[in-house]
Write a protein that binds this DNA or RNA. Structure first.
Length: 553
RNA sequence: GGCCUGUUGGUGAAGCGGUUAACACAUUGCCCUCUCAAGGCAACAUUCAUGGGUUCAAGUCCCAUACAGGUCACCA
């Protein structure tokens, strides 16, 4: 019996030979230095913030070199796959501006000449290559049952040995063809493992674009390549797919680093040229003193949806990720305030080679705040409305009822060289402006109460607002006139009209303009901290100012 | 436990044998003809996990220790 016939018996019903597949996936015709890379998620429907970082970087590296970034779905774990998981991932990534040149485009369609891009649709291909290994005596059928494996593991950990199927534990490795076939004919279930040619005592040098060259032991474990359901393992699918799809750079999370020797060995055994690797450090969090990787299960902020719900603009998230990806990005953005992320050249060498970066929420918010401050009033309006439509019906109704008025509010201190930065996220907006809308003012005024500062005597407060509205207020005043009048008002009532005078001789006055303005401010808005008072007065208008003063009185 | 990686201020970090150890966020203080926001200025690591070594010179190179993270499936 030839090796070929033998391989056919172990993996029957395979349509094409590996040689045929080689011909079906020719070299790509790309410029020198073009990076071909991919994002290869499992279809769980959930996009982890770290995964967003990796897919973003992959896309940038491909685009920067006029290369290709494709999306491949790694659904070889049947149990974990989720219904509509593929479109969930695609939509989520798309919403962050991440698109693919090639690969799966929706649940059912793909674009590109190297498909299919869903691993479960490539079953025949993996088997063809597994057969190649069997023919070459580099892989074998293993009959080890779950129970036997557990026993081996237990024995190994008890005697403090390395875990895994290697050396004497690789029981079926030297079974003859005849024995193997006999057991198959008896209906025993089996999987295909490689015959690892490596030795644990040999060190190999592996190179990573980010971490540099490191040494690790050769893989000597007879890794599974085809599972009992006929589906390949991740490792094998990775080698076959990235070879056939002509991936030049594998950019992935650094949890894969420890499998690198395995992967390199697999490429060698298959006779493939190995791609270059870049392992991205994980995003971590400090959980009561212990630093660990952001976890899907434990940390809500691990999901990109968390920030969308929180009202953080997606652009801000991408800016944050860019600063995490390359530490010189932030400085570049400082130099190029209007620069787009796409104009920045990312480098592998500038990626963090440490074992993780703490996910820095205050920093994210700071970036977000700066981003929102640069938007126009229309953009703030539209995006706040978009947010409110999903998460705050009351505010949505208000925004829709007063579009122009709302934009005027958002425009306070916006169109200036250094715009006001008081919204960290769209969910902050309502809390900052509610008092500008009568409906919300009436509803929340009692709940929040008036935040008077130094002047709390109600008679004095009445005195100030009465004098102001009767003697000084004029809705047609420009800003300078208005402020001069507030000064006059202050002086008339025994307050310093000028801060300097007050600071020099505080004892000569009851207080200062600041105190008087605060009374006006709080009486109108309930709050001691608001944007420019003059603008607020203008937007409120005479009638509403009077009404709000009346409420106080 | 084995293997791999890492350890610079509250946080993210720059640094690649000779620098006053960048920068950003945060914090604190001061300033800025109304508050806040913004802005300006200033403070914040006598020291780069610890201990040895190499060198005229070390955060930077080497070795050990400690600590942290990752990984060791018919999961990816």
């Amino acid at each position: 019996m030839t090796n070929k016939e033998y391989a056919d018996l172990l993996l029957p019903g395979v349509e094409h030979t590996w040689e045929e597949y080689e011909a079906m996936y020719p070299e790509r015709d790309l410029p020198e230095g073009a990076i071909v890379t991919r994002y290869a998620p499992s279809p769980t429907g959930f996009v982890h913030i770290g995964a967003l970082l990796v897919s973003f970087l992959a896309g940038r590296f491909a685009a920067q070199t006029n290369g290709v970034n494709f999306l491949r779905i790694e659904d070889t774990d049947q149990e974990r796959s989720v219904e509509n998981g593929i479109s969930g991932i695609i939509n989520s990534l798309n919403s962050f501006g991440i698109t693919f040149d090639e690969g799966q485009m929706s649940e059912t369609e793909y674009k590109g000449n190297y498909g299919p891009y869903i691993q479960t649709e490539r079953g025949d291909i993996y088997k063809a290559y597994a057969k190649k290994l069997i023919e070459e005596d580099k892989a074998y059928a293993s009959f080890l049952s779950k129970e036997e494996l557990d026993k081996i593991r237990e024995e190994q950990s008890k005697s403090k040995q390395r875990l895994g199927i290697y050396g004497r534990y690789a029981k079926d490795r030297n079974l003859s063809k005849e024995e193997t076939l006999e057991r198959i004919n008896n209906g025993e279930s089996y999987i295909i493992r490689i015959k690892s040619p490596g030795s644990f005592f040999n060190k190999i040098k592996v190179n990573d674009l980010i971490k540099g060259t490191m040494e690790m032991p050769e893989n000597d474990i007879d890794e599974v390549i085809i599972k009992s359901d006929g589906i390949p393992t991740y490792h094998f699918a990775h080698a076959v797919d990235d070879h056939l799809m002509h991936t030049t750079h594998v950019i992935r999370g650094d949890e894969w680093l420890s499998s690198l020797s395995k992967h390199i060995q697999l490429f060698e055994m298959l006779g493939f040229k190995a791609p270059k690797y870049a392992h991205i450090a994980p995003l971590t969090k400090n959980d009561n003193g212990t630093i660990r990787k952001l976890s899907k299960r434990k940390d809500p902020e691990a999901s990109v949806d968390y920030f969308t719900e929180d009202g953080v603009p997606k652009e801000a998230i991408m800016l944050y990720l860019a600063t995490v990806a390359n530490s010189n990005f932030e400085g570049w953005l400082d130099q190029n305030p209007n620069g787009k992320i796409e104009d920045f050249k990312f480098e592998f060498k500038k990626c963090s080679s440490s074992s993780g970066s703490l996910f820095d929420l205050p920093k994210l918010y700071n970036i977000s705040k700066n981003f929102i401050s640069k938007l126009t009033k229309d953009e703030v309006y539209n995006r706040t409305l978009e947010y409110a439509t999903k998460y705050d019906e009351e505010f949505k109704d208000i925004l829709e009822k007063y579009p122009e008025y709302s934009k005027d509010i958002f425009n306070i201190e916006r169109e200036q060289k250094k715009p006001r930065k008081d919204y960290e996220k769209f969910s902050d907006v309502k809390g900052q402006v509610w008092y500008m809308y009568d409906e919300l003012f009436d509803k929340y005024v009692s709940e929040y109460g008036y935040d008077y500062q130094s002047i709390t005597d109600i008679n004095e407060i009445k005195n100030i607002i009465n004098t102001y509205i009767e003697k000084y207020y004029n809705e047609n005043d420009d800003k300078d006139t208005w402020f001069n009048k507030v000064k006059e008002l202050s002086e008339e009532l025994g307050y310093a009209g000028n801060m300097k005078d007050y600071k020099e001789n505080p004892d000569n006055y009851k207080g200062s303009v600041a105190d008087v303005s605060t009374v006006i401010r709080v009486s109108l808005t309930t709050r001691s901290q608001t944007p420019d008072l003059y603008e607020i007065l203008k937007l409120l208008g005479k009638e509403r100012i009077k009404n709000r003063f009346d409420i106080v009185k």
